[in-house]
Design a protein around this nucleic acid. Sequence first.
DNA 1: TATGAATGAGTCTTCATTCAT
DNA 2: AATGAATGAAGACTCATTCAT
Lengths: 206, 206, 206, 206
Amino acid sequence: MGKVEENKQLKLDALFSSAYDLFLSQGIVKTSIHDIVQKAGVAKGTFYLYFKDKYDIRDRLIAETARKLFLSAHEELQKADIPSFEDKIIFIVDYVIGKLEKNKPILRFISKNLSWGVFRQAVTKKENDTELSSMEYFQQLIQADPALRLRAPETMLFLIAELASSACYSTILENEPVSFEELKPDLYNAIRAIIRAHTLPAAGLP
Amino acid sequence: MGKVEENKQLKLDALFSSAYDLFLSQGIVKTSIHDIVQKAGVAKGTFYLYFKDKYDIRDRLIAETARKLFLSAHEELQKADIPSFEDKIIFIVDYVIGKLEKNKPILRFISKNLSWGVFRQAVTKKENDTELSSMEYFQQLIQADPALRLRAPETMLFLIAELASSACYSTILENEPVSFEELKPDLYNAIRAIIRAHTLPAAGLP
Amino acid sequence: MGKVEENKQLKLDALFSSAYDLFLSQGIVKTSIHDIVQKAGVAKGTFYLYFKDKYDIRDRLIAETARKLFLSAHEELQKADIPSFEDKIIFIVDYVIGKLEKNKPILRFISKNLSWGVFRQAVTKKENDTELSSMEYFQQLIQADPALRLRAPETMLFLIAELASSACYSTILENEPVSFEELKPDLYNAIRAIIRAHTLPAAGLP
Amino acid sequence: MGKVEENKQLKLDALFSSAYDLFLSQGIVKTSIHDIVQKAGVAKGTFYLYFKDKYDIRDRLIAETARKLFLSAHEELQKADIPSFEDKIIFIVDYVIGKLEKNKPILRFISKNLSWGVFRQAVTKKENDTELSSMEYFQQLIQADPALRLRAPETMLFLIAELASSACYSTILENEPVSFEELKPDLYNAIRAIIRAHTLPAAGLP
DNA sequence: TATGAATGAGTCTTCATTCAT
DNA sequence: AATGAATGAAGACTCATTCAT
């Protein structure tokens, strides 16, 4: 990489990381571009060299954050060696929520701003060619169990994601209507119920 | 009511109704207090006599809107004469979503800003003494079926509300990942699955 | 006038006078709203209470300046008691240019920005009811000489105004292609020639 | 021309032509150097190798545009074979205004920015040695009619140019105070009147 | 109670110009 | 000669909030 390229990457990283910190600590609305560039140690104009506006950098950060979260969830899942599909989903949900529970600013940041579109784009993107995207991984999860037959798998995933994210936002951040610890078993039961509602009888065995 | 009291109420109503219209049509962020008072035909200072800030009036409006929505759902339910508890819940969900589907600005307004706290406060508030609050109504729904035994009914309600509101936001407003029409059967199935996951075996069988 | 009204007028006057000074001394482009309000001793927001933007205050100032200039020209003309219409026009042109020659910033300010529309609006506006507008005055000039019959008087006036303003801008401010003193006789001759070209033969004498 | 020289000329031409297009289409104020270099396909720094700033390139473009305009007017005049000096001037004015009327952006560009200095410099410059400059051409026009004796011919030309350009700007672009079609006869009469005011009685009469 | 003029901090955005490569 | 990333001053404009009337 040339010196110029290197310097560009440095500035870009500084902007990303400053914006991320500020978004997490004071929220997006209260973070100004002035704050971001000041923290990053670059000039205001530099921001506009790389981003359209505050929401541009926000969307890129959310996608990236979500991507990393699911990537590490997948890695852990592989280590865990869980045979059942249902258990795998619960494992991933539990892993991700566990991370978010430990880092409430990230939970706030992601939940408040994550649309399904951004989410899917995030988990669909490959970092490089050798790496599977989250969606491909999900396909593999399904195929890994040859007896499993699912109806409308993407809709199912969507329902689970919406339920989990929106329920954990309220319980973790606001303890409303119950603590997340209290909610957990019921939430996981609900997720299992949704999976079963999408599971077709196993294909005919002779 | 005295003349002065009457006048106060008039201004208050004007502010509420102007803010409501503006929040629906241009969103909360883009609506300024200047816009609200201008539309209401009162002076800027008057706003601050009644509200702390923009978010104060917003929260009151959301609660009120949600309250009315559920009130009319309950009224329709009574007319409909549905025996099963599960079907009653589906009826209410379907009624409310149906209304929101026809009025997307309200859907956007409520979903983006409705926390469980505001929601419960809204449906818990009684208009007057003779009228039941939504929560009391919900208790009655449960008791109406003597054979029904529910575990953690509020948690169940919370899960259903979060799932329904968050899933219909994305599908109705953004058609993501599918249209709401496509989602509907799966969503209702999921809700039924959640209810069943909270249903205990009927009491007192020999 | 109430105390509030009086204060409003004070602010308005301060803004007008500050903007006028700055426009004359550094030009419009180089004058910022920050400069204007600072000089006026009011807050930035106050500017936007009274004007749409910099060009709003500019147009109002130009119109006002032009109006005053022609008003004083008319006053002088009345004192001078000149019978011939042609001489009256020359007198006014000479008076106005004389003023501008002594105050080059005003010449620069007006000439660079005066369109015929703004000009006519300026000289057409009455300060109050008893005062004639410049245009009415001009009509009177024509009628004062019963033998005078003019073709297309407004077009004639337009040609004279354009010629005079544009020729004196270049000669007074840039001495191009000659000094204004050198130009003067030829300019006045040209104006007389234009008037004559618009003069019809006097109405039938017996 | 060497390869390097050729390349320089290419860049220069691209900058000129891009700036010209942008100045005409969006005006000078709204055109940034970024716009110009982007359209020209050269780097920002390159601009500063050839021009001091935006106004440098503007002045050169205006001069060039005016030069070409008058050059083609002269060519047409030669074809037309008009004997009278007065008619020749009217012919040139009419030709130039006719061109500008058909291309209002050029009219706006030139009129807003053309000073007599730039104008004279433009029409005085020779493209190459064999070609006459416009001013020399004008001298020839005068001498072509041996009986014609003019007082202060440059002043006369200046007055005509100022009158014509400033009157056609307002009428063509803004239809103020009348349309250009309406103005035309009066304008040409005025020009003829100015010429006559500069014409001395023919020499050498017995 | 009600008003609305005044505030001025705060935000976004643009752009001419420089300079290391 | 050419590049284009980086700069940061400069500018326009908004808006919640206050307070004298």
